[in-house]
Design a protein around this nucleic acid. Sequence first.
DNA 1: AGCCAGGGTCTGC
DNA 2: GCAGACCATGGC
Length: 274
Amino acid sequence: MREITFKNNNVYIKCDNFNLDMTFDCGQAFRFKKISDNLWQTVAYGKKLVIEDADGFIVLRDVTENEFYSLWENYFDLKRDYNEIIKVLSADKTLKIAAKYGKGIRILNQEPFETLCSFIISQNNNIPRIKGIIDRLCKKYGEYLGEDLYAFPTASVLANLNEEDLKDIRMGFRARYIIDAAKKVSQGEVDLNKLKFLDYKTAQNKLMTILGVGPKVADCTLLFSLNHFEAFPKDVWIKRAMEVLFPNGLPDCVKGYEGIAQQYIFYYAINKKI
DNA sequence: AGCCAGGGTCTGC
DNA sequence: GCAGACCATGGC
């Protein structure tokens, strides 16, 4: 079910499988702030967005119809039928349980460079601290958008920094990784937008030419910003959960939707503390 | 104090 | 190809 209406410069969305708390808090994005009980705020693609969880529908505040169709519809993956995917995944008994638990999660289509940097920062780190580092990075090097909000810094800005410039961001040993990523992206050595159209393995290998990018960081970038749903990021939570839930590996029914299955398993594991 | 966090690099076999 | 030390930082 999907109904979109435009009124008073707001977008009203009625859509199955779209829960704000689940989608913004499942570890795929680090720049969503809950500013009140039913209100979230973020910056994406250089734009401020306020999202309201109203009774039975979701409101994107101060968004035109044109902006919705050119940006946010894709950003929230609203063209995809998650019910259909859950139906396929539910062929497996365990996946059925995890999918039912996390059915409100949607995979966001985030900015590739921001996503790449965010998951470089995520390595050997925890979610609250990752958020703090990204906040400080945006505040110091991102474009100011008003109201104490900042865009994520561009690759060319970060490419001109040295490790000393990043000291007060407190990202530790990851600083040189961020600079290397920024250099390779801004010089076109790694063309992020092109990776969307390459096959999964080729795209993953290309990302892994960046210092500090291994299979896991590459998979997160591919899944959360480049439309590669066959990516299956394996972090410590997933590895633990897999040992308990899928000791013999993933069932065949996940084929093509490994990434979505991964999110359901991750969300289930992290909340049930498996 | 020691362990852990949405891992990866580097070295040594 | 694979194991193991090491990597900054902060919360518990």
